[in-house]
Simulated assay, not measured.
Amino acid sequence: MPETQTGGQEPGDLDAAERSLGELVSDAGDNISRLVRLELELAKLEIASDARKVAKSSGLFVVAAVLGHLVLILVSITIALGLAALGLQPWLAFLIVTVFYLLVAGVLAFVGVRYLRRLQGTPRTSATMTRTMAVLRRDPSAGR
């Protein structure tokens, strides 16, 4: 019979009837362990690839945000100078623009807090993990 690299016989060389239950369970455990290791390796490779893409995209978003912020500053100054040109005192024109942005920031913060309060976490994942752990522990209530 052909031997494996470890010196043992190939699992397919013996009929299932000739193999003991312990050997079958051991092979199943080895196969599951190998499958999990391969799945983890695949996940690592996919995550590494995605991480590089996310890093590049994040860098581009940061540059765009900085440029957008500069544009916002320039537009704010333009609006304030425009109000001053209409006859308002310059300090009052800049104060009006500042108060406007404070109001916008307040509304956005309020909406953001309301969205955060609606978060539920991961209820489905928690439920499925609880059921999976119960099955692995052989809990009779696992099917519920």
Results as ranks from 00 to 15, higher is better:
residue 136 L to H: 01
residue 102 L to D: 05
residue 130 T to F: 09
residue 137 R to T: 06
residue 74 L to T: 08
residue 89 Q to R: 05
residue 8 G to K: 13
residue 92 L to H: 08
residue 30 D to Q: 14
residue 92 L to K: 10
residue 71 V to G: 05
residue 16 A to N: 13
residue 18 E to I: 00
residue 53 K to W: 12
residue 106 G to Q: 04
residue 9 Q to W: 11
residue 46 E to L: 03
residue 118 R to M: 09
residue 15 D to T: 14
residue 94 F to Q: 01
residue 31 N to S: 09
residue 103 L to F: 15
residue 78 T to D: 11
residue 70 L to K: 11
residue 30 D to E: 14
residue 136 L to A: 02
residue 25 V to L: 12
residue 117 R to V: 08
residue 127 A to K: 00
residue 122 T to M: 12
residue 106 G to S: 02
residue 64 A to N: 09
residue 91 W to Y: 13
residue 10 E to R: 15
residue 70 L to N: 09
residue 93 A to D: 02
residue 7 G to K: 07
residue 40 L to K: 15
residue 133 M to F: 05
residue 135 V to L: 07
residue 80 A to E: 13
residue 144 R to H: 00
residue 139 D to C: 07
residue 130 T to Q: 09
residue 68 G to C: 11
residue 20 S to Q: 02
residue 47 I to C: 05
residue 10 E to D: 15
residue 85 A to L: 06
residue 49 S to E: 14
residue 1 M to A: 15
residue 126 S to G: 13
residue 78 T to L: 11
residue 121 G to F: 13
residue 94 F to L: 02
residue 17 A to C: 01
residue 88 L to F: 12
residue 88 L to R: 10
residue 9 Q to S: 14
residue 46 E to I: 01
residue 19 R to I: 01
residue 78 T to A: 13
residue 113 V to W: 15
residue 134 A to M: 14
residue 61 F to G: 05
residue 104 V to E: 09
